[in-house]
Design a binder for these strands. Structure first.
Length: 380
RNA sequence: GGGGGUGUGGCAGAGUGGUCUAAUGCACCAGACUGUAAAUCUGGCGGGCUCGCCCUUCGGUGGUUCGAAUCCAUCCGCCCCCA
């Protein structure tokens, strides 16, 4: 019998550490590797569910800190859980608020007990402890929930990284205790998060300790916060062999197309990232021929689709010239069209990668992708 | 016909003797964005280059002054009031 959040390995790449698998949740089975669009406030910004479905997105994120502040867990509980509330009937994952410990750096205070936030909405004070985060995430009711942790910035000195990593371990223990104190684990899964910044010995320790604690799945946090790619790669190479093979590995907050390839090549199963939506809202579009900024002058009279190899509604229905016009005119439709296209791009990219693992030609597929992706631009 | 006002960079609009290639906003040209305090932020936006400077700009022309977008004269354009 499959527990929520449990992972079944289907196929390992013979060329790399890439792997295909299935992730079980109470709302459906997910093919991994998987890319999860981020829907912080219970919505993937700018994209209606119907469109999101057509992209093939299997799972989306929500954020407990944001949903706790607004609309509040009472309302979500009353609605029957987040997926009833937002009508996304597929699996969801909530982040714990740990990222806000990082991103709201100026308006929060960390103690051993937890983190005190000043609401970014009205300045009111709120306290998130590991226990609180578990309660909030239980109330929200996503399929997979995350331990409350501290996401450290980069760079951070060794001493701070060490004590922060230790704190995240302590918090993880408390999260586990709180999570399993009722029957939530029947329908939700709790993932642990490995920290340790760019220090490989800290990462190693965190991974061992977390693995010993025994989580249903494991995430790698504190990456993609501005560190060089080589650091991210070396951290992944250090950590992944330590995590049990029969557990899902989730690289939090990643990423760019190149990060997806590099992460999967090293054994990552799950990704989430705001890039397709945020960058879409800012005019940046991912295509099989590289990134472009649709706002640029060169697209003013370009009556071709964003990506000749894309089957998304944006590419099927609209030209670059029109999208350029929408962006310049600040017509809100572009938010939807560009976000949707970028989500299609990321989801389909991971589909392609997943297939290549099945076909045992990961490295060839990677080369084919990047030969095209970098054909029109400087490598960067 | 008489009286008053006004003319500034693509647009709007500050500045009213030196610190002015001239605030600010918009527009325009680029760049960034990785578990979303982001439909946001950053840079550029007269010309030249040896990148420190040099040259050219505030309706036109002529003056005053060591120095003018700024003062004076005159011309041109626009606006308002009275006949």
């Amino acid at each position: 019998m499959n527990q929520c959040g449990s992972y079944t390995l289907i196929k390992k790449s013979s060329q790399t550490k890439a792997r295909r698998g299935k992730l079980f949740t109470s709302r459906g089975i997910i093919d991994t590797p998987v890319f999860m669009p981020v829907g912080t406030q219970g919505t993937v910004k700018g994209v209606p569910n119907e469109f999101l479905q057509t992209s093939g997105a299997q799972m989306i994120l929500g954020n407990s800190y944001h949903l706790y502040l607004r609309p509040g867990t009472e309302i979500i509980k009353k609605a029957g859980g987040i997926q009833k509330f937002n009508s996304w009937n597929k699996p969801m994952l909530t982040d714990s608020g740990g990222f806000q410990v990082f991103s709201l750096n100026d308006i929060r205070k960390i103690t051993e007990d937890g983190a005190e936030f000043k609401s970014h909405i009205d300045g009111s004070k709120h306290f998130f402890s590991p226990e609180k985060s578990m309660q909030v995430q239980k109330d929200i009711g996503a399929d997979i929930i995350m331990c409350f942790d501290e996401c450290t910035p980069y760079p951070v000195d060794y001493k701070y990284a060490q004590s922060s990593m230790d704190l995240s371990l302590k918090w993880a223990k408390r999260c586990k205790l709180e999570f399993y104190n009722d029957n939530s684990s029947d329908k939700q899964a709790l993932f642990g998060i490995i920290q340790g910044s760019s220090y490989l010995d800290l990462r190693e320790k965190s991974a061992y300790e977390m693995a010993n604690m025994g989580f249903v799945g494991y995430a790698i946090g504190g990456l993609s916060v501005g560190e060089p790619k080589e650091i991210m790669h070396s951290v992944l190479e250090k950590i992944l062999p330590i995590i049990p093979e029969n557990k899902a590995r989730y690289l939090m907050g990643v990423g760019m197309p190149e990060d997806l390839w590099e992460g999967i090549e090293r054994g990552i199963d799950m990704f989430d990232c705001v890039i397709p939506t945020r960058n879409g809202r800012n005019g940046q579009v991912f295509t099989s021929l590289g990134k472009i900024n649709i706002r640029n002058m060169s697209y003013k009279k370009d009556f071709t689709a964003l990506d000749p190899n894309c089957s998304c509604p944006t590419c099927k229905g609209y030209t670059k010239a029109y999208l350029n016009h929408l962006v310049r005119a600040q017509e809100s439709l572009y938010l939807t069209l560009l976000s949707l296209h970028n989500i299609f791009f990321m989801v389909n990219l991971v589909d392609t990668i997943r297939e290549s693992i099945g076909n045992n030609n990961f490295l060839d597929a990677k080369k084919v992708f990047f030969d095209k992706y970098y054909s029109n631009q400087k490598r960067g």
